[in-house]
């Protein structure tokens, strides 16, 4: 760094106030500079928060899409006649409940669907039977994709929620009410363990 560039940096004690400028004016200038700096920081923080809220919205939309896809495929399979009647009924019931669930019961209903899927597709033989049916190959692939993507989408959503919550707990954000009226973000908690026969992948 060249030596003269240091002199341009604002420094409270470095230079005595210029003779042409009364001490009051210089104090005023400092106050304005400080206020501007605080304003910039607040605006930047608000921008960060805004971006995080947008990220949560996008992640939530993606999660909803994946959950809906999963419930649709499950319902399709339940009504296709490729499963035995008991399994069909269990799966249909759970998929229907998941699709119709009110917001408050959504997490429970989706967890129930996960459980039902695990019960029905617990064995590889069942998956093979579905694959063997006409059109079953596609259905099985879609279901495998859906049960794989739901945990992914949920993890991304909850990660965004955690980041937003961490920022919203920050003093600056609380004191200056930077979050406005945006509701405090809530994680989506559910049992999303995929059936073993459909997801034979390590470590997720």
């Amino acid at each position: 760094m060249p030596p003269d560039s240091r002199a341009t940096m604002p420094h409270r004690t470095a230079a005595p106030p210029p003779v042409t400028c009364a001490p009051v004016t210089s104090t005023l200038i400092w106050i304005v500079v400080a206020l501007a700096a605080i304003g910039l920081y607040l605006s930047w923080t608000a921008g960060r928060l805004d971006r995080l809220h947008a990220r949560i919205d996008a992640a939530r939309a993606a999660l909803d899409a994946q959950l809906l896809r999963r419930a649709s495929v499950a319902q399709e399979l339940a009504t296709a006649g490729v499963l035995d009647p008991a399994a069909s009924m269990v799966l249909y019931e759970a998929a229907h409940a998941a699709r119709q669930a009110e917001e408050d019961h959504r997490e429970v209903a989706e967890s129930d669907l996960s459980q039902a899927l695990r019960a029905v597709f617990g064995e590889t033989e069942q998956v093979e039977a579905v694959r063997a049916a006409p059109g079953g190959e596609d259905a099985a692939r879609e279901l495998a994709q859906a049960v794989r993507r739901v945990p992914m989408a949920r993890r991304f959503h909850n990660d965004a929620v955690r980041a937003a919550r961490a920022l919203r707990r920050h003093r600056t954000v609380r004191w200056f009410r930077l979050a406005g009226h945006a509701p405090f973000p809530l994680a989506f908690e559910m049992d999303d363990e995929p059936p073993t026969a459909l997801a034979d992948r390590p470590g997720t």
Partner: peptide, 23 residues
């Protein structure tokens, strides 16, 4: 086999599709 690109690539594409779904 679980480390083959056919599996890993599909997983990575799933991630791409999941994040672009709502954005």
């Amino acid at each position: 086999r679980r480390f083959d690109w056919s599996t890993v690539g599909a997983d990575i594409l799933s991630v791409y599709e999941t994040v672009t779904d709502g954005a």
